[in-house]
Amino acid sequence: MEIRTATDEDWPHIHRFYSAVMAEGRTYAFPEGQSMGEARPWWMERPPGRTVVAVEDGVITGSAKMGPNRPGRGSHIGTASFLVDPAHRGRGVGRALGEHVIGWCRAAGFHAIQFNAVVETNTPAVRLWGSLGFEVVGTVPEAFDHPEHGLVGLHVMYRRL
């Protein structure tokens, strides 16, 4: 698997599974039903951030965006978000993107990484981030309206670099 910086030409491919994940309504509090133009600024980061794609056999299987969690005095903490094409789940794409983000954040000089909103019922993500050294440092109760479980918490997860 190759992980590389996303290009303008990659965006239509990313948007296909971005839209599918948002339509599922289980992992992101992003707006659903966004056009390609509306969704682009929600995913395609500008410097100092970065968006990458995971590519296998010429097919984009996932994407991650990363950068400072906050501006100014919060810019020493990184953050990231991840998407795996539903057709490629369970094949290690998320782990590879997570490892890439950790390495990028470390090389960029971040002190730590904070994930601001991991849906507590997203067991595969919570398990993956835990295996990569993240811990739940708090949960905002009933902050996410899950289509099956109703109001569930959003975990804040943290990993020192």
Rank of each mutant, 00 (worst) to 15 (best):
M1E: 13
E2N: 15
I3G: 10
R4I: 11
T7R: 15
W11I: 14
P12H: 14
H13N: 10
H13C: 06
I14R: 09
R16N: 05
S19G: 15
M22Y: 00
E24R: 13
G25I: 06
R26W: 04
Y28Q: 14
P31L: 11
G33R: 07
G33H: 13
G33M: 04
E38F: 15
P41R: 07
W42S: 01
W43N: 07
E45N: 08
P48R: 08
G49D: 11
V52P: 09
V52M: 07
V52K: 04
V52A: 08
A54C: 15
V55G: 03
V55N: 02
V55Q: 08
V59I: 09
G62V: 01
G62Y: 01
S63E: 04
K65F: 10
M66Q: 10
P68A: 14
P71R: 07
G72H: 08
R73Y: 12
R73H: 13
G74L: 12
H76S: 10
I77F: 05
G78M: 10
G78K: 09
T79Y: 02
S81Y: 00
F82L: 13
F82W: 12
A87T: 06
H88R: 14
H88C: 11
H88A: 12
R89H: 05
R89W: 01
G90A: 10
G94E: 11
E99F: 00
I102C: 12
C105S: 13
C105L: 13
A107I: 00
G109T: 04
A112G: 07
A112L: 05
F115I: 11
F115V: 06
A117K: 02
T123Q: 13
L128C: 09
L128V: 04
E135P: 02
V136E: 06
G138V: 06
V140L: 10
P141H: 03
E142V: 01
A143M: 04
D145I: 03
H146S: 06
E148C: 00
L151W: 04
L151E: 09
G153Y: 14
G153H: 11
L154D: 01
L154Y: 01
H155C: 09
H155L: 00
V156Q: 12
M157N: 01
R160E: 11
R160W: 03
L161D: 13
